[in-house]
Amino acid sequence: MAVSRDVLKVRIESDGACVVASLDGSLDEASQHQAESMIMPMLGAERKHLLLEASELSFVSSAGLRVIISAVKALKPHGGSVNVCAPQPTVEQLLRIAGLTALIRIHPSVDAARSALNVG
Protein backbone atom coordinates (compact mmCIF):
# COMPACT_ATOMS: atom_id res chain seq x y z
CA MET A 1 0.00 0.00 0.00
CA ALA A 2 2.86 2.33 0.78
CA VAL A 3 3.82 4.25 -2.33
CA SER A 4 6.37 6.91 -3.11
CA ARG A 5 4.76 10.33 -3.07
CA ASP A 6 5.34 13.69 -4.69
CA VAL A 7 8.14 15.80 -3.28
CA LEU A 8 7.06 18.68 -1.11
CA LYS A 9 7.35 22.28 -2.21
CA VAL A 10 7.06 24.87 0.53
CA ARG A 11 6.55 28.58 0.00
CA ILE A 12 6.63 30.82 3.07
CA GLU A 13 5.18 34.30 3.37
CA SER A 14 5.13 36.38 6.49
CA ASP A 15 2.48 39.03 7.03
CA GLY A 16 2.19 40.71 10.41
CA ALA A 17 1.22 38.15 13.00
CA CYS A 18 0.62 35.49 10.35
CA VAL A 19 2.98 33.10 8.65
CA VAL A 20 1.47 31.57 5.54
CA ALA A 21 3.09 28.31 4.42
CA SER A 22 1.84 27.03 1.06
CA LEU A 23 2.39 23.29 0.84
CA ASP A 24 2.41 21.47 -2.50
CA GLY A 25 3.00 17.69 -2.62
CA SER A 26 3.37 15.25 0.25
CA LEU A 27 4.09 16.08 3.86
CA ASP A 28 5.61 12.79 4.99
CA GLU A 29 8.70 11.22 6.55
CA ALA A 30 10.83 12.27 3.59
CA SER A 31 9.78 15.92 3.72
CA GLN A 32 9.23 16.34 7.47
CA HIS A 33 12.65 17.82 8.14
CA GLN A 34 12.41 20.18 5.17
CA ALA A 35 9.00 21.46 6.28
CA GLU A 36 10.05 21.87 9.91
CA SER A 37 13.29 23.63 9.07
CA MET A 38 11.44 26.14 6.88
CA ILE A 39 8.38 26.74 9.05
CA MET A 40 9.50 26.48 12.68
CA PRO A 41 12.10 29.29 12.67
CA MET A 42 9.43 31.66 11.38
CA LEU A 43 7.16 31.13 14.39
CA GLY A 44 7.33 33.04 17.64
CA ALA A 45 5.66 35.66 19.81
CA GLU A 46 5.53 38.17 16.94
CA ARG A 47 4.31 35.73 14.32
CA LYS A 48 2.01 33.57 16.34
CA HIS A 49 -0.52 32.39 13.75
CA LEU A 50 0.46 29.74 11.25
CA LEU A 51 -1.71 29.36 8.15
CA LEU A 52 -1.00 26.21 6.18
CA GLU A 53 -2.34 26.62 2.65
CA ALA A 54 -3.08 22.98 1.87
CA SER A 55 -5.11 22.99 -1.35
CA GLU A 56 -2.17 21.38 -3.23
CA LEU A 57 -1.18 19.13 -0.35
CA SER A 58 -1.98 15.67 -1.69
CA PHE A 59 -0.85 13.47 1.21
CA VAL A 60 -0.08 13.79 4.90
CA SER A 61 1.41 10.98 6.97
CA SER A 62 2.15 10.61 10.67
CA ALA A 63 5.32 12.64 10.10
CA GLY A 64 3.23 15.46 8.64
CA LEU A 65 0.85 15.34 11.60
CA ARG A 66 3.87 15.65 13.88
CA VAL A 67 5.00 18.79 12.02
CA ILE A 68 1.60 20.31 12.77
CA ILE A 69 1.79 19.19 16.41
CA SER A 70 5.27 20.75 16.71
CA ALA A 71 3.86 24.03 15.42
CA VAL A 72 1.01 23.85 17.94
CA LYS A 73 3.55 23.27 20.72
CA ALA A 74 5.63 26.22 19.56
CA LEU A 75 2.70 28.64 19.29
CA LYS A 76 0.51 27.65 22.21
CA PRO A 77 2.65 29.43 24.86
CA HIS A 78 2.29 32.65 22.81
CA GLY A 79 -1.47 32.29 22.52
CA GLY A 80 -1.09 31.61 18.81
CA SER A 81 -2.83 29.17 16.52
CA VAL A 82 -2.31 26.70 13.69
CA ASN A 83 -4.79 26.92 10.83
CA VAL A 84 -5.11 24.54 7.91
CA CYS A 85 -6.68 26.19 4.89
CA ALA A 86 -8.54 24.46 2.03
CA PRO A 87 -7.33 20.93 2.74
CA GLN A 88 -8.24 18.16 0.31
CA PRO A 89 -10.93 15.78 1.68
CA THR A 90 -8.53 12.92 2.49
CA VAL A 91 -6.16 15.28 4.32
CA GLU A 92 -9.04 16.82 6.25
CA GLN A 93 -10.34 13.36 7.13
CA LEU A 94 -6.90 12.39 8.52
CA LEU A 95 -6.72 15.56 10.61
CA ARG A 96 -10.14 14.75 12.07
CA ILE A 97 -9.33 11.08 12.71
CA ALA A 98 -6.09 12.04 14.45
CA GLY A 99 -7.92 14.41 16.76
CA LEU A 100 -5.92 17.40 15.55
CA THR A 101 -9.10 19.39 15.09
CA ALA A 102 -9.01 19.82 18.87
CA LEU A 103 -5.68 21.63 18.46
CA ILE A 104 -6.00 23.42 15.13
CA ARG A 105 -8.67 25.12 13.06
CA ILE A 106 -9.70 24.22 9.51
CA HIS A 107 -10.78 26.99 7.13
CA PRO A 108 -12.03 26.92 3.52
CA SER A 109 -9.32 29.40 2.44
CA VAL A 110 -6.45 31.56 3.67
CA ASP A 111 -8.67 34.64 3.46
CA ALA A 112 -11.33 32.93 5.56
CA ALA A 113 -8.65 32.07 8.11
CA ARG A 114 -7.43 35.69 8.22
CA SER A 115 -10.98 36.87 8.73
CA ALA A 116 -11.59 34.36 11.49
CA LEU A 117 -8.38 35.39 13.20
CA ASN A 118 -9.27 39.02 12.70
CA VAL A 119 -5.84 39.82 11.27
CA GLY A 120 -7.08 41.21 7.96
Binding site: M1, S62, R66, L94, A98, G99
Partner: peptide, 23 residues
Protein backbone atom coordinates in the same frame (compact mmCIF):
# COMPACT_ATOMS: atom_id res chain seq x y z
CA UNK B 1 -6.91 -5.70 -0.03
CA UNK B 2 -4.28 -3.31 -1.40
CA UNK B 3 -5.48 -0.36 -3.46
CA UNK B 4 -9.03 -0.36 -2.09
CA UNK B 5 -10.79 2.56 -0.36
CA UNK B 6 -11.03 0.40 2.76
CA UNK B 7 -7.25 -0.11 2.86
CA UNK B 8 -6.62 3.60 2.25
CA UNK B 9 -8.89 4.50 5.14
CA UNK B 10 -7.29 1.91 7.43
CA UNK B 11 -3.94 3.40 6.38
CA UNK B 12 -5.14 6.77 7.62
CA UNK B 13 -6.05 5.20 10.95
CA UNK B 14 -2.52 3.80 11.10
CA UNK B 15 -0.91 7.18 10.32
CA UNK B 16 -3.08 8.83 12.97
CA UNK B 17 -2.27 6.13 15.55
CA UNK B 18 1.43 6.43 14.74
CA UNK B 19 1.34 10.17 15.41
CA UNK B 20 -0.59 9.49 18.63
CA UNK B 21 2.08 7.05 19.88
CA UNK B 22 4.85 9.56 19.11
CA UNK B 23 2.93 12.18 21.08
Amino acid sequence: PEGTPARALAGQLIEAADAMLHT
